[in-house]
Write a protein that binds this DNA or RNA. Structure first.
Lengths: 222, 222
DNA sequence: CACTTTGCATATCGTCGTTATATAACACTG
DNA sequence: CAGTGTTATATAACGACGATATGCAAAGTG
């Protein structure tokens, strides 16, 4: 179906240029002509290597999914699984903020030149949840969460953080209810609803956020 | 700034046609030429009445905000404020599903022909929260929720339902964790986190959903 | 009546994604 | 080495897009 690149070097260059253009100048800057100029080639390269703009965007989206997955996988597994859940949420949010336009294409349904996701693409997105599901299951096994459907709880957390991120990217979260405040509140609510009594006892989650991708929610933990 | 329509008839016809095209054929169908053909006029009408495609989209978005606001305002105020909160969430979701493409433009940052929201537009979106804030405050006053920041709780609910709706519209919520299941779970979690003991005691929220825009969460209520 | 203003159709410009065509580089056969 | 088929890329072109300029007819005004 999709033509395999014979010279993967130029193919990678195109994806890199596309990602850079999308990140730095937004979706409006992504065009075959602009892309060709940036990569030092002609517009035909897009078609010989990818078959069209759609498939190039699709390849970029796939890279975005693996980046997100790498980011989630890099979150250290500590002895406090509930803290790990919060850290995963923060990692998810940070990845979205760093690749905001790409995130919009991946999950927000941002119509990039009429681009539409396929079910296969979405499957890559759902795959990201597996790390979160496992961590939630660890919370339940450790008695930190009340026993239940780990996958459903993971979905809830995904939905909540995704909602936060999209509203944040859309500019809808402003002071005093800015994204940081709401993020802490969302994580806290999810932990409480999952049955985490320690989170329920914690006064506020807006403490120091020094460690990267880790929420200080488990500050009162032994 | 924005030119006032001298013949509001054609202006309304254009907005209607644009809304219909967006709803029925998606963002790709919205073009000045197509719009002119549907309205039986020329492409110039878009510029004389609105000043450009951007402003026409803006006018449509504004209509979308008032539609959403009307929908939320139409939710009956019952004696059970927690049930009203859930009903508002369902009304929000139903409005988004009925105007899915418009919702994407309003909140999802869907780039419709390079269209970008202004802060004034976003203010219209935030205004919708006021109804929810009042209802949450009623919950707190009635002792149904533990006392706290009603505006923050309303934001949390907004974020959660918005996240659900966008993932639902993006096709990311499939069985067995489909949108209905996740919606019930989100509402339930929010009520529990807000301190609603009745919701916490309720086994599941996935009971009969017969009454329009009303969640049966308060089934165990006197 | 003449004169200005207004509303909309037509034609045009530059850019978009895409395709057709032409050319140049390559691999292989004899 | 010549000849041949394949592949990669550049160039040019097509239809459609948003936007603008121009032109013209109807309405308004003295």
């Amino acid at each position: 179906m999709s033509p395999r690149p014979a010279h993967p070097e130029l193919s990678a260059t195109l994806i890199e240029a596309a990602a850079r253009l999308l990140a730095e100048e937004g979706p409006g800057a992504l065009s075959t002509r602009r892309l060709a100029a940036e990569a030092g080639t002609s517009t035909m390269a897009v078609y010989t290597y990818f078959g069209g703009m759609d498939d190039l965007v699709r390849a970029m989206v796939r890279e975005g999914f693996t980046m997100l997955n790498d980011r989630m996988s890099a979150v250290a597994e500590t002895g406090d699984p509930a803290s790990d859940v919060a850290a995963l949420g923060l990692a998810y949010r940070r990845n979205a903020l760093e690749h905001r336009h790409l995130y919009g294409v991946m999950f927000g349904g941002s119509n990039l030149a009429g681009f539409r996701l396929t079910d296969e693409d979405r499957q890559h997105g759902r795959y990201t949840l597996e790390i979160l599901v496992k961590t939630v299951a660890r919370c339940m096994a450790a008695g930190r969460f009340s026993a239940g459907d780990a996958e459903l709880v993971a979905h809830q957390m995904w939905i909540a953080v995704h909602g936060l991120v999209t509203l944040e990217l859309g500019g809808y979260l402003v002071e005093p209810y800015d994204a940081d405040t709401c993020f802490d509140a969302q994580i806290r609510s999810l932990l409480i609803a999952a049955g985490d009594e320690i989170a329920a006892a914690t006064q506020s989650a807006a403490a120091s956020r020094t460690r990267p991708d880790v929420q200080p929610l488990a500050a009162g933990r032994p």
